[in-house]
Write a protein that binds this DNA or RNA. Structure first.
Ligand SMILES: [Mn+2]
Ligand SMILES: [Mn+2]
Ligand SMILES: [Mn+2]
Ligand SMILES: [Mn+2]
Lengths: 218, 218
DNA sequence: AAATATTTTTAGTTTTGTCTAAATTTTAAT
DNA sequence: ATTAAAATTTAGACAAAACTAAAAATATTT
């Protein structure tokens, strides 16, 4: 599989979460940063290789084979992110672009040895699950902070968006994975939240709350 | 720079050692495993980018810029080889192909952090020198085992060829970097050598002796 | 020095992955 | 049910990196 084919497969995999009944050409083009016509071409090739099911005008879905291949790319991406943060002292906002390149290195032995070296981590630095060598993913019990009610408490376990500007904002506010968050107020006008993060009170916008995953604390 | 351009540059760099007055089209084609006509095309592109000097029919030489770029690729290749052996427990015959891919990852920060993580190694698992971040290379005092006289002793410090079949042969004979080698006899007919490796006597062919580097022990 | 062999370059194709512009199909709105 | 809008596909083109076959330049023999 080429570099480009792998990128398409991964994007289709991610889009499948929200569009399980078929991923659109345009959505793929948006993620890959290419044009719809280019997507049509590539999608035909992937269908030819039986990695996806493609019906003209109806969008695409991954086959079993394509799903496993996509998971293996995601596995590599996330393991490399763990390596960069844990071993090379990268910050969580610096790792994504490098991992985008590293995920294409073709060596099963490499990735399995890396996995062992890192102690078989189950989550990456952004709280996303890492598929194991068989492609199995441990379901993480989490929900968006924006879905919590006033008075509820949770522990920050992941980010939905991992744009570096967002991650750097979180660093500045001292919000990290593991932080205890309690909601003490909701503004109905703009849906902004007043929260207490590890004892410190602050106000965050709805957009922030919409991109933070928490595990509900009872 | 593309993947392919980097491979050409690296090959030209290696061939420059034996052909400092200009590397031939055919020699490059042999190493890249492509055809002379393809080399001509690529060589024009590299000259256009001022990475090499190219005169029709006269071979190519690296510019300062091209030399530094080539050294950075070699640096990455060898640091990744050290990583694979030291941290992921690969054997020295398994690392080259993976490093061929890893050497193209584009991140200065990554390679310098990797360098630090590995403790700034100066040689790779095959005894080849690793250029530092400035492109400086520590000259290693070594010579071919085949150039030693009967009675001389040395310590194995590197291999000239690093084909996995050769490396596996060395493993089988328990010859490794650091082994003490003494020449106790030379056969004039086929230039085979009788040697003592860490106390163990054995016979090796001229081809083996021609691919082993030793540091002379006084 | 001329003839021959070798090396290198040019010319013309191919494949991969992209693009623009036009045509087609599907979806949404009157 | 038409019509308008949006999404998707087709057609044709291009750049990168490879190839084969033929032409040109250089090197080697006789
Ligand atoms: Mn990422
Ligand atoms: Mn991640
Ligand atoms: Mn190598
Ligand atoms: Mn090496």
């Amino acid at each position: 599989m080429t570099h480009s084919e792998e990128n398409y497969l991964k994007v289709i995999y991610h889009l499948s979460v929200v569009s399980p009944r078929g991923v659109n050409t345009n959505a793929i083009a948006g993620m890959i940063e290419s044009k719809a016509s280019s997507v049509t071409d590539m999608v035909k090739k992937l269908a030819e290789k039986e990695l996806i099911l493609y019906q003209k005008y109806q969008g695409v879905t991954l086959t079993e084979k394509g799903l496993l291949a996509a998971k293996m790319i995601v596995r590599k991406h996330r393991l490399w992110e763990v390596f960069l943060v844990e071993k090379l002292d990268f910050t969580w906002d610096e790792v994504h672009d490098v991992a985008e390149e590293l995920e294409h290195i073709k060596s099963e032995k490499l990735i399995n040895k890396l996995d062992a070296f890192l102690g078989f981590p189950t989550e990456d630095p952004h709280g996303d699950p890492i598929p194991n060598a068989k492609g199995e993913i441990k379901k993480i019990d989490k929900q968006l902070l924006s879905d919590l009610e006033t008075g509820q408490k949770g522990i920050c376990v992941g980010v939905k968006d991992s744009a570096s500007s967002f991650l750097q904002y979180l660093d500045k506010q001292q919000i990290a994975l593991g932080s205890k968050i309690e909601i003490i107020g909701k503004e109905t006008f703009d849906m902004s939240l007043t929260i207490i993060v590890d004892g410190k009170e602050m106000i965050i916008s709805n957009k922030i709350a919409n991109n933070l995953f928490v595990k509900l604390a009872t």
